[in-house]
Design a protein around this nucleic acid. Structure first.
Lengths: 150, 150
DNA sequence: GCTTGAACCTACAGCGACTGTAGGTGCCAT
DNA sequence: ATGGCACCTACAGTCGCTGTAGGTTCAAGC
């Protein structure tokens, strides 16, 4: 830790579990304010930066987009306002999470069915390949794209 | 449909629900073989291309990565081999889907808790903001990054 | 035969949310 | 003074598409 309770970017990174590059990225896109610099041009952060970064990370862990977090931050900066907007953002996030769970649950069922019926023989008889090749055997709904890996 | 049962890229697109650009993209990354061309340089596909594309799309709907699909395709091309590898890919995919469901379920619980306790007052009292600001109130596990939108 | 307009072509930029690399500078301990 | 790590900037790459610009081909209608 730098003197006067100032934190280097590495300190910030260790305390939030957020990579150094990601901190710089957040600054670049305007999610974190530019901190002071040392004489040698290194970033020096204060507690307020740490709090703000923790807020961002926590939002990300809850699946909020950076845009949603940006909006939540700007709401948090005006504490006397109504929290209707924050509530709406959270509700929409909940809705999306529920949709994803539903979709993944049906994928899970189909994957289990595929695997269950694969008896470890030759590829020609493999249900995994067969099910993929023939959509008509499929329970899952069609076109919407699958979730990407986290 | 072009003559001789050949399909244009638009036909392929309509029959698989896969956008024209995406078909060209799959060709570019080597997931689909280059088809013949007409005299005017337009792609002409056969049934085999349609089957292969349907396989790819179905795999994507089940959440497989393009790399996993590439491997499944190469297995499908050698039908006399053991299907052990295909089974392993499907099992690993199932594992990932289960992990995502578990993670999303705990996010859902925390979002519900946040929303439940937000009584629509001022931002200063808003649980949504408060929970985001204070990680110690959190039930969700920490560092792994949140799922991205599907 | 000619015109129109949709469908096709290539090449490339952009999305979100980072992550990694190259090449250089600062800082601190020994 | 020197070693080695942490820091700096700038930019490219990841995944799986999607969109755009600017041009060509095709089929149908007149």
């Amino acid at each position: 830790m730098a003197r006067d309770g100032r934190l280097t970017i590495g300190d910030l990174s260790r305390r939030t579990g957020c990579k150094v590059q990601t901190v710089r990225y957040y600054e670049q896109i305007g999610l974190l304010p530019e901190p002071e610099r040392s004489e040698g041009n290194q970033r020096l952060y204060r507690q307020a930066h740490l709090d703000r970064l923790a807020f961002v990370r926590h939002g990300r862990e809850l699946g909020f987009s950076l845009d949603a977090i940006r909006e939540l931050l700007s709401l948090a900066d005006r504490p006397s306002h109504s929290c209707e907007a924050a509530d709406a953002i959270a509700r929409s996030q909940l809705q999306q999470v529920e949709n994803r769970i539903a979709r993944l649950t049906s994928l899970k069922a189909e994957l289990e069915r595929m695997i269950e019926e694969c008896r470890g023989g030759r590829v020609a008889d493999c249900r995994v390949i067969e099910v993929l090749a023939d959509h008509s055997q499929c329970l899952a709904d069609s076109h919407p794209p699958a979730a990407t890996a986290p």
